[in-house]
Amino acid sequence: MVKRILAAFGLAIAAYVLWSVLGAATPAVSHPPVPERPDGTYDCASCHGPGAAPRPAEPAPLVPADHVGPKYGADNCLTCHVSVVKASPLAASYATCAACHADTDRTATLKSGEKLVVAVDIKRYLTSVHGDFACTTCHESQETIPHEPLTAEGRREFTREMAELCTTCHKGATASYEESFHGMAARLGVIRAATCTDCHTPHAVQAAANWSLADRAASCATCHSGATESLASGWLGHEEPSAGWFPLVFYAEKFFVGLTAITLGLGIVHVELDLLRWAWDRARRRKEDRP
């Protein structure tokens, strides 16, 4: 009897595990691999374009006649039809946003009157580390349509406001940013001081390991004109210097702390001894002066 109950339990657990694994698995992409042009953009037109050769084995519907206008550019198909390349459960929500934000000329006007480009390069976004997130994961305030008016005064203020969102998840990076000279300048009210998206871009964030030195240098150069890979190579990233990470910085810090402690310590001891000797002499003189 006990054996049967245990067996039933085991069966139930196995079924549960199987069910969760299968249930959580992402749906597969049903579309065949999309050919790419030499510049890396998707070539949808080779199958779906007006002059595409018929494909009896894999019939491809042609682009509908109502798909005309600025947002239906040659490279914009993926903005809405993202499930063609990416089987993300969140992919469906892109389409709603893309209906407007695929238009590369689309801008919003901020309080100061500055124009803010509100278009997203969807292919770069999908290959970024955040590519699995729906737009509203970060842009929560844009969930209602029509959107609430933007609260930022100007473009820099908007950038700073958006960078606040990064800190929700990236706690460690935020702490090290606060320690950096960019973070210090930002905290002291310098609005142009670099914040998260100035280096990492808003929609094409790469994992640090995949981020080439040339790309880093290009990021530096957006503010520090003429910045080379040499300058970028000195960036500590979001890690404290240690014996294994930027040892020169680590040991320089140790050296200067030691030097300061020893020099100031000896100087202060010298002052104190000098003062004590003076007080001692004076006390002795007074004693001698006494009748």
Partner: peptide
């Protein structure tokens, strides 16, 4: 850093 390695800055 055009002359010296980037690590001189930190």
């Amino acid at each position: 850093t055009a002359i010296l390695p980037g690590v001189v800055i930190p």
